[in-house]
Design a protein around this nucleic acid. Structure first.
Lengths: 201, 201
DNA sequence: GTCTATATGCAGATAGAC
DNA sequence: GTCTATCTGCATATAGAC
């Protein structure tokens, strides 16, 4: 998130600040509803100045999406290679996944909703990362089924349901709300790993 | 869905056909990415002719959203008033909810993603229906907890997780794919009602 | 109920000064 | 690295003929 963005005044901006400001606007109003001038206003610069940092508005969107698809693969997925049973490893993934969703909430919403606005190349990149993530979760669920730790019928569907439940939190989980993300994570581990996946013991 | 829409040629259209065509386009490309001419092209009429049926593009969007928020409240929610335990009633709701998602798939995706494009009045209407639906599910979960049928810690979070898992299917469930919606519903009832909610017995 | 023609405004993007 | 000025095109919506 870098730092808070001023509302007006002439200044120098970084590519990071542009991505932050654009992500917040895209998440709230939608990519196509937000003009380049709108992004620039938020940063206190003129629309033309954006093009010194990015070659097009779509490149800004792609930067947002890249941030939010590469990170989980690089930072969260390795938890599935740690020691422990599939159940303990997936419990760790659930917590880390929710942590990531809170940290990158607006970027995540943009990446989820604005896929259609990406060029085919950029979209393919995002979808490839997402499929990879989903496949690793599914394989871990399947390992737990084989070892007898889980009791689901279809590891593929279970992985989809688990990830959809996790990702859905981005729409309503408020870090400053009554339920802290940490408390939600505790409940979700029980509901999803113990409940949905049917962890025994 | 009424009937298939021709690709070109001069014809008379109904408000239903406009909504169908617009919903498909909005779901695929996003509300703001689709022009009124684009919708008209799909129907084989001119852009101006749309304004005989709807006063604005946003009214078309509102009609799509109304269709997909009123229906579940009127058709699916009554299942929670039937006889049976909270578990059997929620199992029926899961099946009906998935059935609705398949039948109104594109409209549902639009209603989920384009809330920000609605006028405040139309958005309030949609959100009110949605909150009502969620509240009824939560209350039924809570009833099951009180009766000892379910074992979740937080009925509110459980309802959210359950609905997020259900709604997520709209993004990937393909009626013509390898898993039939009916088969998916069977698995989801087991995972969500027996698993996530911890139904005993 | 659809058409042609058009009003009006803003979109993304570029050129070149400072 | 940001600015002013501007290009070009398409957006939503309306007026009035058929």
């Amino acid at each position: 998130m870098s730092e808070p963005v001023p509302l007006a005044g002439r200044r120098r901006v970084t590519p990071e600040q542009i991505v932050d400001a654009a992500a917040a606007l895209f998440a709230r109003e939608g990519y196509h509803a937000v003009g380049t001038r709108h992004i620039a206003d938020e940063l206190g610069i003129r629309g033309a100045s954006l093009y010194h940092h990015y070659r097009s508005k779509e490149e800004i969107l792609a930067a947002i999406c890249r941030r939010v698809t590469a990170e989980p693969v690089e930072e969260t997925l390795p938890l599935l290679d740690d020691a422990g049973t599939p159940g303990t490893r997936l419990a760790a993934l659930v917590r880390a996944h929710l942590h990531h969703l809170v940290r990158r909430r607006v970027e995540f919403l943009v990446g989820l909703q604005e896929l259609a606005a990406l060029t085919p190349e950029h979209r393919a990149e995002v979808e490839s990362h997402r499929r990879h993530y989903q496949r690793r979760v599914r394989d871990t669920v399947a390992a737990g089924v084989r070892s007898g730790e889980f009791t689901v019928d279809d590891p593929g569907l279970a992985a989809l349901a688990l990830l959809d439940a996790l990702n859905g939190t981005a729409r309503w989980l408020d870090p400053d709300g009554p339920r802290s993300p940490h408390a939600v994570a505790d409940v979700y581990v029980r509901m999803l790993v113990d409940g949905l996946l049917g962890r025994q013991g």
